[in-house]
Write a protein that binds this DNA or RNA. Structure first.
Lengths: 351, 351
DNA sequence: GTGAAAGCGCTAACAA
DNA sequence: TTGTTAGCGCTTTCAC
């Protein structure tokens, strides 16, 4: 608390200490080439002694760069998004840039408010997972941005970073098939969300590749929450079905909800019901049984998004859509139906 | 993307549009009293038309206030801390200030780096949960700060916000006693952390109040993680004991680990083992059985911390230690041993 | 190789 | 009530 009140040293203080002008001090501090080596040392030493730290505000003012980046995600309390935030944070720090993180809580009005706050804070750009698929707020954002975990169809000249849904679905469906679940039931997100369509499209495509008729697929919708998954599973359970029930949920939270619904219905997992999740949140390791899931590379997504944003800001027109691969996390929520019975080849086309 | 490249309007643009000087425009925008009502309207309208937004950097430069606050927490991926961050975020937004959130990952070097980044970003102050209890970095932070979830013994003239550990421990121990577990085993954090001492002190104090000899308490240490809890529980299980085993863990993650260790040892919860957690993380609702726990008011802590920080910054010397009450979340991890046998009064002093 | 001066956008003290 | 001016800390010409 020593110097709580004391004015913080400026470049002028450093220049005075070193006995040079402030422009010389600035040159030394910036590591410019056109300066006497000995003078530079003197300035650097003076800066150290004075405890000088460059004022980002003043720099921002001159350069037009605040050194601030925004990150708008739906829910910081969701471990997946927290992981994204951490990756972005770390990558930004490498370039001495700070990150303003906002939770939109799936609320378009809140998102608009955050975007506005970001503009006022003079961020150099933002990484955004848009709440709605209308992108209205984005149209008037007016600053460089990168989309994360969302399709960029509306913004052809914008980069986006996401997980490779098609690859993830393939991974999941093939793993299910290996265990003898060729055409699993699906628990999907709300119809309003584009992510749902992308997921479903990948499933259809994979089915076609494996000679399975997509029409036999049974599916239910729900919110991307535990409760949403539980409700969807209850509906699935009410439908007529025989024998073992396999479920592929579009989100780990929903998968956990489905697991609870199964237990509440007196069914046990994985004996009566197999459940595959999608996200890779830590809580999946604590359920009974542990949740087998497809893990998205959250941290890596955050890192790549920041790098993409740097490109946007610098005007390097990458405009790429980066799709990072997901990986299978095998735990215990899938029954192996292929054991004891002849291993059925994928593509059999029956449930 | 319309005006991506276009220079953003300044107060000078607004003044020109309204046909006044920039100081008049500034007065109107600031809502100063000494200005003609009609002129004010004209300026406001001009600002709206121009899409003017006040430049926080420039304001910060003049006023010495950046409108930025820092938050340094051990782990943004821990739902409890994410909750704190969200509360702080929301409260800060009310005053149009933004929050820079950093994860120290329990690493003192990282913490020091973050504190330095915060200073360079010119935050007006910070909310900090210090990694180590040595507070060395804090000594040279040099900006207003508020401690969160940590004791402020080393900083008598600093505010701190935390949960009321004593009340929480009382709540937990009394609830355990009601269920017939008078002297539960304890799973504590690492010896190096001050939080451990505070927790233990509260337990001792409560025991004394209830006429229980603290010496009979059995305890194990571990890291504040699932793995730490599992290891501690394994050690607890190896000790000689008869009948039902009750455990009070100092952290939900550890409690979940303890639950796993019990299951791995062939014991079932709550039949053979009762487990009480402390934190209130969402994952506790997804374990089998659901984890009974004491929930800390994370969100509220974040809010109060920001308010306390505003006081510090304004120079209002509150220097209070706010201890917010915790609440019991009853799920299914505790056996009720009082059923069927006469309810034993608290204070019996036996296991 | 170094210094003087302008200017980023804003607010506040002083003048009119 | 309004305008003029100085200056926050920094970088970047332009002279010397």
């Amino acid at each position: 608390m020593s110097k709580r009140g004391g004015r913080r040293p400026t470049i002028i203080d450093v220049a005075a200490r070193a006995g040079v002008s402030k422009s010389t001090a600035a040159r030394a501090l910036a590591g410019a080439p056109n300066i006497n080596a000995e003078t530079r040392e003197r300035v650097l030493k003076a800066a150290r002694l004075a405890g000088y730290e460059r004022n980002h505000l003043a720099v921002g003012m001159r350069s037009g760069r605040s050194g601030l980046l925004g990150l708008v995600i739906p829910d910081i309390a969701n471990p997946f998004w927290a992981d994204v935030a951490r990756g972005a944070q770390d990558r930004a720090a490498q370039n001495d840039v700070s990150l303003l993180v906002f939770s939109s809580d799936w609320d378009a009005a809140k998102e608009a408010a955050h975007l506005s706050a970001l503009r006022r804070a003079r961020v150099d750009g933002a990484i955004i997972n848009p709440v709605s698929d209308s992108f209205d707020d984005l149209d008037r954002f007016g600053l460089p941005f990168v989309l994360i975990g969302s399709s960029a169809e509306r913004f052809p000249d914008t980069s986006s970073v996401g997980s490779d849904i098609a690859q993830a679905v393939r991974l999941g469906l093939d793993h299910l098939a290996e265990k003898g679940h060729v055409a699993p039931n699906l628990i999907l997100g709300p119809k309003s969300r584009l992510a749902r369509a992308r997921f479903l499209r990948s499933v259809h495509q994979h089915c076609v590749e494996r000679d399975i008729d997509p029409a036999i697929l049974v599916m239910e919708d729900g919110e991307y929450t535990v409760e949403g998954g539980r409700l969807a599973m209850q509906r699935l359970l009410k439908r007529p079905h025989v024998g073992h029930l396999a479920v592929f949920a579009a989100n780990d939270m929903m998968a956990i909800g489905a697991m609870m619904a199964a237990r509440e219905a007196g069914l046990s997992c994985p004996e009566d019901v197999s459940i595959l999740g999608f996200d890779g949140i830590p809580a999946g390791a604590f359920t009974t049984p542990g949740l087998t899931t497809i893990a998205k590379p959250g941290r890596e997504m955050g890192i790549r998004a920041v790098e993409g944003l740097f490109d946007e800001i610098e005007g390097r027109p990458e405009h790429g859509r980066i799709h990072l691969p997901c990986r299978l996390v095998e735990r215990a929520s899938l029954a192996d139906l292929s054991v004891g019975t002849p291993q059925r080849k994928a593509g059999a086309g029956r449930i």
